[in-house]
Amino acid sequence: MAIASVPLRILIGKVGLDGHDRGVKLIARALRDAGLEVIYTGLHQTPEQVVNTAIQEDVDAIGLSILSGAHNTLFRRVLELLKEQEAGDIVLFGGGIIPDEDATALTADGVKVLFGPGRPIQEIVTFVKGLKPHG
């Protein structure tokens, strides 16, 4: 019972250099409105900053938005750092302008799911609410 009353903690952020934050902010708002605890990092985060914040804030999942084309490098770097910090149980998901081919390879490498343009926000909320608390 006690577990069920603790809302999931989710880090939502922008990694890399691009400043397109329209989508990420809508998602952060939607998750917050759905009763989750959202930690929004703001723009221009490095993978190191994201992983450090995720561990400090003890989040259950990290959702990252990338629209600059740097997804292959940045998502993999975050996965690598999570593993190094022994925090591989934190779920990583994301979205952005990501070609199918890259998305398939990234999910094979450990990104839980990537949401492309046009996906309903409710679908993302449902996905996040279905996650289990980590640890």
Binding site: G16, L17, D18, T46, S68, G69, A70, N72, T73, L74, R77
Partner: peptide
């Protein structure tokens, strides 16, 4: 305003 060989540029060169 970041050079191509600076670390924040890694993975972003020539992409957009």
């Amino acid at each position: 305003g970041i050079d191509a060989d600076a670390s924040p540029a890694h993975g972003e060169i020539g992409h957009c």
